[in-house]
């Protein structure tokens, strides 16, 4: 037991101590968030305009990240692409986690057949491989941004549900829940005021992980040509467009991939370096 307390970081000024890697990761995430919001102010050239006579141009002072397969400015396209990648993923992860966590808490608190039915059904849903589910839905309904957001969130609801349910079941066995029940509180009060505050930390960490999965899946779908459709392009679609430049090692193929990697690795690092208090509250 002593080793466990020794591993816990000492409380800092705000009650938590944050290490350097975590701070750096957070900075990168915030940077991409700001880029997504202010993309229209940051781009040096309009995204659709052909500005370079050369295609797959190298990096230069004029075109910071080179030009794409039509001679469009890559820097502008990546900055605008942040909007689609970050925006769609944030919307999808918000829907997925809210739905999953609410359903998970309801299942844990009510128990009985509600719990069994929900768990069975969502388990079955999660045994469809995620990329395949995306492929089938896009084949059936066609790809548009609302369809993408809904599909991505449906795919990740079972995971969020399972996680929240497992945490909530533990809390549900505590004495203060029994006290609340004897007081005659209803299910919604118990969920909102007794369970949610106690599982919030781990749930937020899980939200971050699910955000990474969603970014990766969205990029994968876009890369297959099933995600964001032209003339708009997210980072995955930018790689697809410029894949022809791969044999020459064109910057147009590499930088969208690097953008994705910088975002997803940062989120993973941030979660791994979260203060012990937030991450492992359930344990």
């Amino acid at each position: 037991m002593t080793t466990d307390t020794a591993k816990m970081p000492a409380a800092g000024r705000m009650g938590y101590r944050f290490n350097l890697v975590g701070m750096l990761a957070l900075a990168v995430i915030l940077l991409w968030g700001l880029v997504a919001v202010f993309a229209h102010l940051l781009i040096p050239y309009p995204v659709g305009e052909i500005v370079d006579f050369d295609y797959f141009g190298p990096m230069s002072a004029q075109f910071w990240l080179g030009s794409d397969y039509l001679g469009r400015d890559m820097f502008s396209r990546i900055v605008m692409g942040a909007r689609y990648t970050v925006g769609i993923s944030v919307a999808a992860v918000a829907i997925a986690c809210t739905t999953g966590v609410v359903l998970g808490m309801i299942a844990a608190v009510s128990g009985g057949w509600t719990d069994t039915l929900l768990s069975r059904f969502l388990d079955a849903m999660s045994s469809i491989p995620s990329k395949l589910f995306g492929l089938v839905v896009v084949a059936a309904v066609g790809s548009s941004i609302p369809v993408l957001i809904i599909t991505l969130s449906v795919i990740y609801i079972p995971g969020a549900y399972r996680f929240a349910r497992a945490l909530a079941v533990n809390i549900n066995a505590m004495d203060f829940i029994t006290v609340a029940r004897t007081r005659g509180e209803n299910v919604f009060y118990i969920i909102r005021s007794e369970i949610l505050p106690n599982i919030l930390g781990p749930v937020l960490a899980d939200l971050g992980l699910r955000f990474v999965f969603i970014v990766l899946l969205l990029s994968g779908l876009s890369f297959l040509g099933l995600g964001v459709q032209p003339p708009y392009a997210d980072w995955g679609a930018l790689v697809r467009e410029n894949i022809g430049g791969l044999p020459f090692g064109a910057p147009a193929v590499m930088f969208p991939s690097i953008a994705i990697a910088s975002l997803t690795i940062s989120v993973n690092l941030l979660i791994d370096n979260l203060p012990y208090k937030i991450r492992d509250r359930s344990a």
């Binding site: 990766l216 990029s219 991939s257 990697a261 993973n268």
Partner: peptide
């Protein structure tokens, strides 16, 4: 962690490069 947090196509393009 690096390989897990990047999309599969990036692993493929990096291998090609």
């Amino acid at each position: 962690i690096g390989v897990i947090s990047v999309p599969e196509f990036m692993v493929a393009t990096s291998a090609v490069l």
